[in-house]
Design a protein around this nucleic acid. Structure first.
Lengths: 207, 207
DNA sequence: TGGAAATTGTGATTTAATTAACAATATTTT
DNA sequence: AAAATATTGTTAATTAAATCACAATTTCCA
């Protein structure tokens, strides 16, 4: 059984709020509290939690620690995955420092760039390799996810190489859509689109 | 009439592909061609274009230049908007350089940071101001959209100040959800969530 | 010229996601 | 211990988004 995409997203978000709660010494949380921390309703929270088959102590709310673990069983299930960041411009560096150490099951273990002055530089503990060694290093280190932050005009080529190297998941931060075979999961995030959307809805009175 | 959110996103993406087509000297484009450039079907493209009320020359495809203009009428309608980037770390710099000069109707005209060593620095032609002058500068320059790239622990405070200063749209790149009044449009993008989602779908065979 | 082929525009249908509604259960109050 | 209250879990209803199906139109080709 595969969870709805949006549910997966929300679970990831819930988990982080829950970890925060745990730090603050909170042991139980109600659906409406968790909803309040996100832009969300209590029903939605309960529905999401229903999907992962966890049930609370009736009337006491969800056990924070247990819920974190159950979400972990879903999101981190099985072995951890190795991740590479392709392109170490501002965005690549941002993404790398963002992620390193954050989630133990997702390890950024290499970055790549064409710029020879960046080779062997270490960003947040992760070493930068020349992009022409990508296939070799991806294969040797069993890297299954790549985060693509290269300039638009090299995105297609880099992607082809990554697919060739056997990557299974891709996050695309460039401004061009990428093409990958069906079996590769692709998540595209386009900042320009997001900004234009914000501008549109700022101007158009929504409902 | 307000367009569906997803349609607005796709229109933004279509426009960029169309501009590219124009550069390549293409004057007409079929719905299936445009679909092929995105992860999309021909019907979806036609439906989106139907929403904005444009109709093509039957059987010749859409006139690229006209379609660009019609999308522009929707997305850029009326006056341009002024934008500020809050927090000039790696991500803030990435976003700023990304956007500057890209879309003429959305002008990044200021960046802000707490770090005094960054004050007065110019990133891609945009000057950095101390964050305590935010309200003053936002008001004086009629800035209506803010892109928030500050560290998680200052996000809430910065947001409150932005709302106070009369901002109307917000893009949140921090890892904590923000709270804004209903009349402020909020778009949240959470990289950690996206990465965890990719990891989940890489492991779970989808459909 | 007439039929085959290609393409659009759109009503109807399907699917996915969200929300409403409420029974079941546990807790608190009186 | 009965009644009132709060909360969950889930079925049913609604809404939003995507897809199907096809008539209408234009172009192409024999």
């Amino acid at each position: 059984m595969t969870l709805p995409e949006r549910t997966v997203e929300r679970l990831s978000e819930y988990r982080r709020s829950l970890l925060q709660c745990l730090e603050e010494g909170k042991t139980h949380i109600f659906s409406h509290e968790l909803a309040g921390l996100h832009h969300n309703t209590a029903v939605q929270v309960r529905r999401d939690i229903m999907f992962i088959g966890y049930t609370s102590m009736q009337r006491k709310g969800y056990d924070v620690r247990e819920l974190i673990d159950v979400i972990g069983d879903i999101l981190d299930s099985g072995k951890g995955l190795n991740v590479a960041v392709i392109g170490i411009g501002n965005l690549g560096r941002a993404v790398t420092t963002y992620f390193v150490g954050k989630r133990s099951k997702l390890n950024i273990i290499a970055t790549f760039d064409v710029d020879t002055t960046k080779i062997d530089r270490v960003i947040s503990g992760v070493k930068c390799y020349p992009i022409n060694r990508m296939k070799e290093i991806v294969e040797a280190n069993n890297i299954s996810i790549a985060i693509v932050t290269v300039p638009a005009d090299s995105a297609a080529e880099v992607t082809a190489q990554l697919v060739e190297a056997g990557i299974m998941g891709l996050m695309n931060f460039t401004t061009v859509p990428l093409n990958v075979p069906d079996e590769v999961y692709l998540d595209e995030y386009d900042m320009i689109t997001s900004l234009e959307k914000v501008a549109y809805f700022v101007k158009s009175p929504r409902n």
